[in-house]
Design a protein around this nucleic acid. Structure first.
Lengths: 206, 206
DNA sequence: ACCTGAACACCGTTCAAGT
DNA sequence: ACCTGAACACCGTTCAAGT
C-alpha cells in the first residue's frame, strides 16, 4: 500500500508523488486510495513512518561511543536508500510508532552514556538534528553533482573574486563530490567529541 | 516584486504561495508575473536570495569566538522573521549574490579563526548545516506549540510506556515551548567548543 | 515592453452511485 | 467493504493576441 508510494517518491522525487500517479501505478482509480489512506498528509506520514521503520537499530555494546556511531551510520544508509524520506523528516515532526521506537532507542543510548533524563532529551534533539543535517548535506551534494549548473559554480568572475576574497580562495575546495563518507565521519567525530566533553563536564559537576 | 512573494510565504506558508495568489495580491493577472520572473523555481530562488540578503553580518571583532556567535544569532533572527526562507534554505542550495556574500563572510570568519582554507571549507559546511538544523528545530517547535495534536503527544499508553521505557521517562521533558533561546545558545556553545577543540588539535599538529 | 484571455495538462478532494 | 465517474476548486505554463 504505502510501499508503492515510497518507491515513487524515492525514484521520481517527493513532488512527483500524487494520488493519480500512485493510483495508476497500482492499476486502480485515484479515488480508491481514499479507502486506505485518509489524506495526502496521512500518506506522507505513512511513508515517513515506513522508511523510519527500516532504520536498523543496533543492540547495546560495550563502548558507548560506538552506539551513536552505529546509529548514525544506519541513518546515513537509510537516507541514501530513501532520499525522499529525509526531506519528509526535516519538514514534518513524526510521532508514529517507528518514530517512538527510534526516539526510545536514541534516548536509551544517551541515558546509558551517563546523561540524566533531562539532559538526555536536550542532547537527543541535538543529535537527531545533527544527523538530519548531515543527511541533508549529502542529499544536496548528490543533487549538486547531478545538477548541470554545478559545473560553473565554483568559477567566480574576477570582479567578484576581488570583493569576495575568502570565497574565491575556497572555490577549489568547494567542488562537489569529493568524499561524502569522509565528510560524514568527520562530522560524526565532531559530534561524539562534543558529547564526551559534555559528559566530562557533567561528571565534574556532580 | 519578490517582496510580496516573501510576505505571502511567511504569512500563509510556503505551500500557499502560488502565481495566482501572488498576482491577485499585486492586483494583476497571473501571467503578467512571467514578465518579471522566469519560473516558479526562479521565484523561490528569488525570495530565498531576498531573505538571505537581510542577514546582518557583523564586522570582525577582537575575540574570534564572538563572531560566529553573532552570525548565528543574526541567522536565528532571520529564521524567526522569515520562517518560509528556512525551509527554502534546506531544500535547495543557493548560489545567488546574497548566498555568495554570506559564504564569503563565514569563510572569512573561519580563516581568521586560524583554519587553513581547506579545513575552513569543511567547517563552513558543518557550521552552515548546524545553524540550519538549529533554525529548523525552532521552526518545528513553534509549529508543535500551535499543533493541537501536540497536547496528547507526550502521553503514552501504559503498554507503550513499558516497551519504550526511555521515551516514557523523557516524556515530561519533551513538552514543547520550553525555552527556545536557551536551547539555541546551548547548541551554539556546543558548536563553538567543538571548533576550539579542532583549532587546538590543528595547532598541536603544525 | 508589458499585460491579457483562453486553453492545456495537471493537482487534491467530495459525493453520489455502483457491486 | 471496496471501487468508480463526474465534478469542483485549484495548480504551473504556453501561446496568440492586444496596447
Amino acid at each position: 500500500v504505502l510501499a508503492a508510494a515510497l518507491a515513487i517518491a524515492d525514484e521520481a522525487g517527493l513532488e512527483q508523488l500524487s494520488f493519480r500517479r500512485l493510483a495508476s501505478r497500482l492499476g486502480v482509480t485515484p479515488m480508491a486510495l481514499y479507502r486506505h489512506v485518509e489524506d495526502k498528509d496521512a500518506l506522507l506520514e505513512g511513508i515517513g513512518d515506513l522508511a523510519l521503520a527500516r532504520l536498523e537499530l543496533t543492540a547495546p555494546t560495550g563502548d558507548w561511543r560506538e552506539q551513536p556511531r552505529a546509529t548514525a551510520r544506519s541513518f546515513r544508509a537509510l537516507a541514501l536508500a530513501h532520499p525522499a524520506a529525509v526531506r519528509l523528516f526535516v519538514s514534518r515532526p513524526l510521532f508514529t510508532p517507528a518514530a517512538q521506537r527510534t526516539a526510545d532507542a536514541v534516548l536509551g543510548l544517551l541515558r546509558r552514556a551517563g546523561f540524566p533524563p533531562e539532559r538526555a532529551v536536550l542532547h537527543y534533539r541535538q543529535l537527531v538534528r545533527f544527523l538530519l543535517a548531515l543527511a541533508v548535506l549529502e542529499a544536496e551534494r548528490r543533487d549538486a553533482v547531478a545538477d548541470p549548473r554545478g559545473a560553473g559554480r565554483a568559477a567566480l568572475s574576477p570582479l567578484l573574486a576581488e570583493q569576495l576574497p575568502y570565497l574565491a580562495e575556497a572555490a577549489p575546495y568547494l567542488a562537489p563530490g569529493e568524499d561524502a563518507e569522509a565528510a560524514f565521519e568527520a562530522g560524526l567525530d565532531f559530534l561524539i567529541a562534543g558529547f564526551e566533553r559534555l559528559l566530562a563536564v557533567g561528571a565534574a559537576r556532580s
